[in-house]
Design a protein around this nucleic acid. Sequence first.
DNA 1: AGAATAAAAGTACTTAATTACTTTTAATAG
DNA 2: CTATTAAAAGTAATTAAGTACTTTTATTCT
Lengths: 143, 143
Amino acid sequence: MLSNTCKTAIKAVIYLASKDESDEKSGVKEIARYINASEHTVSKILQTLARQKIINSIKGPTGGFYITTKQRKQPIITIVDTIDGKDLFDECGLGLSKCSSSHPCPIHDEYKKGREVIQKLFRTKTINVLCEPVESGLAYLIG
Amino acid sequence: MLSNTCKTAIKAVIYLASKDESDEKSGVKEIARYINASEHTVSKILQTLARQKIINSIKGPTGGFYITTKQRKQPIITIVDTIDGKDLFDECGLGLSKCSSSHPCPIHDEYKKGREVIQKLFRTKTINVLCEPVESGLAYLIG
DNA sequence: AGAATAAAAGTACTTAATTACTTTTAATAG
DNA sequence: CTATTAAAAGTAATTAAGTACTTTTATTCT
């Protein structure tokens, strides 16, 4: 469903959002180590997200990436849209080019039903929600 | 969700299954032209499917690919499993490695709900079902 | 049997996705 | 104001997915 890059993006954002202080900054090295991904990959992804104002970045010593309280209220779909593109949830399940609601393929409606559950999930659940189990630590999720 | 190769596979099988006669054989050229895909790609895919006995092939003149009445009763998932692999529907929606039903991530249950609608669809709908609108022709679907 | 046909199979090429490396720029601390 | 730190940005290398080409093998028809 989601690309690997997008999954890494979500993990990195979860890590940032798991910080108690809204302005606590994390370096790429630290994040990459924790989520077990390549430093280079993580920095590329976080740069992209920062450009879209989904997270923030500060250069220089004591710099790093962080996410504000307000930004934590964004739905997860903002990450997905930025990394995987906006039409991930719009295509026919079988890739039939001429399938549409007015000319549906035999599985159109049922596929749509499933897809919409997932889409709604990404639209309504916020980044905050992903950090809920933070009391018991996030290691079991993204470590 | 499905890879492009897998979508092409499904289209090719729909084309085969749209033939009235169970033993009516179609050549790669004809199939590829109809579903608007590369001949080479289509033949690779069909060879794979034939090896898995999802469809059949006969060499030589008057040869080609075909699908029996019995094979048309197979669920679509057999194609998906063969082309995209068996664990397409088993992963966590966010790619969190340690997410599981006993240690679910915050969106685990809801994501699973959506995924299972789609999975069930592929498990229960047969190849036959995809050809139901055959009376009005398949052109609007795969042409 | 020999020629012709069409899939099988193996190989090579192309493109896109992912990962790695290098240089530049901004910010801070001494 | 210089050195250091860390992200930004651009480039290059790798990997995987998809597409193209070539040779082989089985089958049928003459």
